[in-house]
Amino acid sequence: MGSMGIRGSFNMVKLAERRVFSHSFKPIYDEGMGLVEEAAEFLDGDGRILVRSLSRTAASLYAAESMRLTTRLMQLASWLLLQRAANSGEMSREQVAAEKAKVCLDTAEPEEGAPGWEELPDEFCDLIRRSIRLEGRVRRMDQEIYGDGLAYHNDYPVNPVSDQIMLLETAFARG
Rank of each mutant, 00 (worst) to 15 (best):
G8M: 05
K100Y: 01
Y29F: 13
V36N: 10
R139E: 14
D163Y: 01
G8E: 09
A40P: 00
P121R: 10
T57L: 01
Q95F: 02
R133T: 11
L54E: 06
M33I: 14
N159Y: 13
E31N: 01
C125V: 05
A86V: 06
V158S: 15
I28H: 01
N87E: 03
S55L: 06
Y29H: 11
R56C: 08
F10P: 00
S78Y: 00
S24W: 01
Q143E: 14
A85Y: 00
S24F: 04
R130L: 03
S162M: 13
P27G: 13
T70E: 08
L15W: 04
G175N: 08
V13L: 12
L54C: 11
Y29L: 14
G89A: 07
G2K: 02
R130E: 05
E17M: 13
A58S: 05
N154I: 08
L73P: 01
P157T: 00
D155F: 05
P157A: 02
D106F: 04
L134I: 01
V96M: 06
D126N: 09
R137N: 12
E119T: 02
G147S: 07
E111M: 14
S24V: 04
A59K: 12
R137Q: 14
I145A: 10
G45E: 04
S24L: 08
G47D: 11
A63C: 07
Q75H: 06
A39K: 09
E38I: 07
W79H: 12
A98E: 07
F25V: 02
D126L: 08
D155E: 09
V161S: 11
I132T: 01
T107D: 03
A108L: 13
Q83C: 08
D148L: 07
D163N: 10
R84D: 06
L76H: 01
L54D: 07
E111C: 10
S3M: 06
L81E: 08
G2A: 07
G175R: 06
L134G: 02
L69T: 07
T71N: 09
R129N: 03
V158H: 13
Y62Q: 05
T70Q: 03
G5H: 07
I165S: 06
S3R: 12
M4A: 13
A108M: 13
G147L: 04
E37N: 14
W117L: 09
L167W: 00
L43M: 07
V138G: 05
A114C: 04
D30P: 02
Y152A: 08
L134Q: 05
P157Q: 02
E37W: 08
T170I: 05
E169P: 00
E119P: 08
L15A: 15
I6Q: 09
I145C: 11
M33N: 14
K102W: 00
F25Q: 04
K14T: 15
K100E: 06
K100R: 13
A173G: 15
D148T: 04
E112W: 04
K26F: 07
L50Y: 09
M12D: 14
W79R: 12
L120Y: 02
A173D: 14
A173N: 13
E109L: 12
K26D: 11
D163W: 02
E94P: 00
A108I: 09
R48I: 10
H153I: 09
L150I: 11
E119L: 03
L81R: 14
W79D: 10
R56N: 08
A59R: 13
